[in-house]
Design a protein around this nucleic acid. Structure first.
Lengths: 169, 169
DNA sequence: TTGGAAAGTCAACATAGCTGACATAAAATC
DNA sequence: GATTTTATGTCAGCTATGTTGACTTTCCAA
């Protein structure tokens, strides 16, 4: 692995690719992600749920009717792990699991009214922080932020990500 | 909490602050962070360490001689949790814990040669992905990326973050 | 000299990931 | 029609990493 001396390739200064810059980026990801999850985590403490429940609720809200398998792919966990979470959400009446019409093996997931309420409470908090950060950084920075995150994703997931609803894109 | 209708304030289009945009940002953070941790996680499997060990090693490398308390603040975990990780790293000869000269209660943490080798292996992998993403997105996007992440952090942590080494800033 | 801070330790517990094995139902294929 | 594959669910057990609470030791500083 190269020692990270930047040099100049293609006539462009590549100072933003030094090891120091990359390490700062790594730290920024760590600290920002922790802040990013802190607000919903605080809310979840009031219920008997954890971050795993939040993630499931988020994606079910985003793609109502998605199958268990699709959710599995997006969350990147085992079915046993997801099932534990999903079972409590169904039992508690936050998520509805409907047998597929065409393929009756599939279960299509929807939020109930109660589930949608929790989703809103959680995402309101998370979006509030996001909005403040976006507002502070400005539209150009936000575009760059999204570009870098997208480039960082695994390609299969990136396709899922890009195909998700985005009215203003 | 406002319903997120963007409107136009201050004469500037605030389309980047719509709920949809914010939700996409939330998803981007989730997917990118997972990819971001995947490479070092794969390496750690070969040893008997986890992500918590990686984080400790990272920050000890970045600020050689930092105290346990400082590390605790940066990692945001309890001392009991950190201690379990730190103990194995010291036992395995990756980290050295030196009694403070001025204040003998404090322990100053340093990586050993062996610890520095693992640090490099882990950070090489993590930086490789970061570098690819930076290169794909370009310097302007990277600047925006950093701005948004910084704005997202909790203020106390942001101060720590900003005071850390960054030769090219 | 005493109070409090820094660090370390023990015990018990919770969350959320994992593997492996197995069951059921339904679709798909031979 | 029989067989195989797919989608899902479930049980058991393990691991990593977080938590709280209680306690001890060391030692700086008022």
């Amino acid at each position: 692995m190269a020692a990270g001396s930047p040099g100049t390739q293609g006539g462009e200064s590549l100072l933003f690719l030094t090891d120091e810059q990359l390490r700062k980026g790594i730290e920024a990801m760590f600290f920002a992600y922790r802040a990013f999850t802190a607000d919903p985590d605080r809310i979840l403490e009031n219920y008997e749920y954890g971050r795993a429940h939040h993630r499931a609720i988020h994606f079910i809200n985003r793609q109502p009717g998605l199958t268990v398998n699709t959710l599995l792919t997006m969350l990147g966990v085992t079915k046993q792990s997801l099932n534990r979470v999903l079972r409590t959400l169904v039992e508690d009446g936050l998520v509805e699991s409907r047998v597929g019409r065409r393929d009756k093996r599939e279960r299509h997931l929807h939020l109930t009214e109660k589930g949608a309420m929790l989703e809103r409470e959680l995402s309101d908090a998370q979006r509030a922080r996001m909005r403040a950060a976006y507002r502070a950084a400005g539209p150009a920075a936000v575009a760059g932020f999204r570009q870098v995150l997208e480039a960082m994703m695994d390609p299969d997931i990136r396709r899922h990500y890009q195909s998700m609803k985005d009215h203003t894109a």
